[in-house]
């Protein structure tokens, strides 16, 4: 396994544990960088999407939440999707179960913006209800099911919407086995918020001209993209898995962290050597 990939695995596990560590619940004023339901019995921080919707429905102009998204996006783009999202990590683990993947073009990524505009912005404002939370499969997995399992009173008030949520979760779980990170690529409104910042963020992917466009990077990529097509497009979650090829690098504020075009193998041979 790649060194960066090993590190990312540890960071993903650490982030999931830190956000759901049960203690330090005084941190709930602080939004997490990723989708993590604050109704989870173990959650210690606030979900940014849930917070955004609740601020909107309560009539706040969400300045701090917007600032949080802008700062984080400007610093690392979508890296929090690739490194800190527990639901993204679960999808990646599920993806390991199915070897043959259905390939769906990332062109349908615009669906995330529709989900963001309708369920997380417009409907909460009009209906005064957090509509995305009511459908969110991450919330069902992290909070809905555990709460229903732990509390008899909660079980008694469960209605048809809960079973719709469970069905959506099941659909995402099934899709995650068949398709690479489907929720992140086509549904997640938080990914839609961070995506445009990839183009300007301080953390950037770089591709050296020695890249032979063999598409081996697409095979290892958790969001099924060829890095040479758009190293700083909104699709990339900055997981850095493609840096196994020496033609691909990463920079922060113009300084190379992993140099593109360094000595070493390129393409399929590079990824196979590190497997």
């Amino acid at each position: 396994m790649l060194r960066t990939e090993k590190l990312r695995n540890y960071v993903q596990i650490g982030a999931a544990l830190l956000q759901n560590s049960y203690f330090f619940k005084g941190l709930k004023f602080c939004p997490t960088p990723s989708l993590n339901c604050y109704a989870c019995p173990l959650a210690v921080t606030a979900c940014p999407m849930g917070s955004l919707q609740n601020l909107i429905l309560k009539g706040y102009l969400p300045l701090a939440m917007t600032g949080f998204f802008v700062s984080l996006g400007a610093a690392v783009g979508r890296a929090s999707c690739g490194w800190a999202c527990p639901f993204g990590y679960i999808q990646e683990l599920l993806g390991r179960l199915g070897k043959k993947k259905l390939r769906i073009s990332n062109e349908y990524g615009w669906l995330r913006y529709v989900v963001l505009a309708i369920t997380a912005l417009a409907l909460p404002f009009v209906l005064k209800s957090p509509i995305f939370c009511k459908l969110c499969p991450a919330g069902t997995l992290e909070a809905g099911i555990p709460l229903a399992a732990l509390d008899e009173e909660i079980r008694e008030i469960i209605g048809p919407l809960f079973w719709l949520k469970v069905s959506l979760l099941m659909a995402v779980i099934w899709a995650s086995v068949k398709i690479k990170r489907p929720f992140c690529r086509f549904i997640c409104p938080l990914g839609a918020v961070y995506s445009p910042f990839n183009r300007i963020s301080a953390l950037r992917m770089t591709v050296h001209e020695k890249c032979v466009k063999c598409d081996a990077c697409r095979e290892v990529c958790p969001v099924d993209m060829s890095i040479y097509e758009g190293p700083n497009s909104g699709v990339c979650i900055r997981c850095m898995k493609c840096t196994g090829c020496s033609a691909v690098g990463v920079s922060f504020l113009g300084k190379d962290i992993i140099k593109a075009g360094r000595d070493g193998k390129i393409g399929r041979a590079a990824y196979e050597e590190q497997r």
Binding site: G50, N54, Y60, P160
Partner: peptide, 20 residues
């Protein structure tokens, strides 16, 4: 805003089970 986020995150909103 942070006070509003805290209060919202500490109440049992039950959106996660599709209630409210």
């Amino acid at each position: 805003e942070f006070r509003a986020i805290y209060l919202n995150a500490t109440i049992l909103c039950l959106s996660c089970i599709g209630v409210q």
